[in-house]
Amino acid sequence: MSSSSWLLLSLVAVTAAQSTIEEQAKTFLDKFNHEAEDLFYQSSLASWNYNTNITEENVQNMNNAGDKWSAFLKEQSTLAQMYPLQEIQNLTVKLQLQALQQNGSSVLSEDKSKRLNTILNTMSTIYSTGKVCNPDNPQECLLLEPGLNEIMANSLDYNERLWAWESWRSEVGKQLRPLYEEYVVLKNEMARANHYEDYGDYWRGDYEVNGVDGYDYSRGQLIEDVEHTFEEIKPLYEHLHAYVRAKLMNAYPSYISPIGCLPAHLLGDMWGRFWTNLYSLTVPFGQKPNIDVTDAMVDQAWDAQRIFKEAEKFFVSVGLPNMTQGFWENSMLTDPGNVQKAVCHPTAWDLGKGDFRILMCTKVTMDDFLTAHHEMGHIQYDMAYAAQPFLLRNGANEGFHEAVGEIMSLSAATPKHLKSIGLLSPDFQEDNETEINFLLKQALTIVGTLPFTYMLEKWRWMVFKGEIPKDQWMKKWWEMKREIVGVVEPVPHDETYCDPASLFHVSNDYSF
């Protein structure tokens, strides 16, 4: 037999072997998808029940369902290793196997995995149920939502704001400190077992692309791009910072340095994350009609249902689908009040099986009107990829998912749209002054938050990498806050605090 014939037969044999492996992989994935749908849905439903009704029974049910899901994933991840990716030609099959071969938290021992889940659930519970009591009246206690958040959004009393700011960190942050220390250790162990340098590197892996249509993007490039983007917006932020400082000097004349940092408790919310609520103090042309339409919403008797129905109309107007019937029947759109304790931070849920929901303790404000559009943007994205195989139902990356939500809320905030839905009067006219007011309001929300987020994530990356010793977490946190964000702590904090974890995203294990 000629050498060319042998070569042809060899190629046929290799192709047949690849085809056999690929067919086996497809069969394996079909079985996995069928089983995963049910187990993931049960786990998601148990998590939803806990988040909307925080009880010991629900946390136990959530843990049990989560353990079943984790055990299943660990088993299936091991089985998926049997299919070598280099022998799979079908890109859809390869991407699913690649996702499943990534072990995630299931790489930890059973004891450590359970401990990590306990830590995460405990931190979430402390954050959502933590109360601050009035020292003069111990029976008068406030949760973060709505009590403390209400103070931080609306109060102009310097000392009341300081009390709310400090009490939240003292009551909740200190409880979270030992848990967060354990969390860092276990998450790093999980990341390294998955061949990442640390948990920050694991997060950045979400943005990594290897040879898809000839395109590559590394975790290191992400760090470079983040640094570059921050340097680009820094001059604009510094101008905004100086303008806000001048306006705060008028409101709090004896508390603000004309050349120094801004006190952290005066920036519009509990964390200084969004400066939106400073608009009334900083509006350049106050004689113009108010483009913050909160009062109009209240006057027109809007409620949470109306807010979300208007958001749905907005999405339908640009060619996107209505929310499902189940969305309206199962979402929690208002604070249950004293009936039950719930996690009030707005979140969009894709539970699986076409079950999409939003959890939000909606208030009738323009801020929540825009947040509703943001969260519904997440749901629209979830619905758009719902037909994909189970392992591919995700956003391109976390940042893109947020961008989908944010672009919709930005569009909904324009005076033209607000006028079209009757929240600005029919005779409202846009001119240079109203446009400047609008742009300032947008800058308070968007530009003001960028250094906050950059600095927070930089601190977390450094902590996970071990570049900040545990006994210097708070020292470095406030050094970076002053240097990068231009914000100063109103009272000193020692290493018993854990100020970063006083933010939902940190205590609940979300990256930005």
Rank of each mutant, 00 (worst) to 15 (best):
S19G: 13
S19R: 07
S19P: 02
T20H: 12
I21G: 05
I21A: 11
I21N: 13
E22A: 11
E23W: 01
E23M: 01
E23I: 03
Q24F: 15
Q24P: 09
K26G: 10
K26Q: 03
K26L: 04
T27G: 14
F28G: 14
F28Q: 15
F28I: 15
L29V: 14
L29F: 01
D30R: 14
D30L: 07
D30I: 00
K31P: 15
K31Q: 15
K31I: 15
N33D: 01
N33S: 02
H34I: 13
H34Q: 12
E35P: 15
E35F: 13
E37G: 14
E37K: 15
D38E: 11
D38K: 15
L39A: 04
F40G: 10
Y41T: 15
Y41V: 15
Y41E: 15
Q42D: 15
L45M: 01
L45P: 13
A46R: 13
A46D: 12
W48Q: 10
W48V: 09
W48M: 11
N49Q: 00
Y50R: 11
N51D: 10
N51C: 07
N51W: 05
N51H: 04
N51G: 10
N51I: 11
I54D: 11
I54G: 11
I54S: 11
E56A: 06
E56Q: 04
E57P: 06
V59Q: 09
Q60S: 10
N61G: 07
M62P: 13
M62K: 09
M62N: 10
N63R: 05
N63K: 07
N63G: 07
N64L: 03
N64F: 07
A65E: 12
A65L: 04
D67C: 02
D67G: 04
K68Q: 10
K68R: 03
W69L: 01
W69E: 11
W69R: 03
A71L: 02
A71Y: 03
A71F: 02
A71I: 04
F72M: 08
F72L: 09
L73R: 05
K74V: 05
Q76D: 03
Q76A: 04
L79A: 10
L79G: 12
L79S: 07
L79V: 00
L79W: 00
L79C: 13
M82Q: 13
M82L: 03
M82S: 14
Y83F: 13
Y83M: 13
Y83E: 15
P84F: 12
P84R: 12
P84I: 13
Q89W: 09
Q89F: 02
N90M: 00
N90W: 00
N90D: 01
N90Q: 00
L91K: 01
T92H: 00
V93E: 13
L95S: 03
L95I: 06
Q96E: 08
Q96H: 11
Q98S: 03
Q98E: 02
Q102L: 03
Q102R: 11
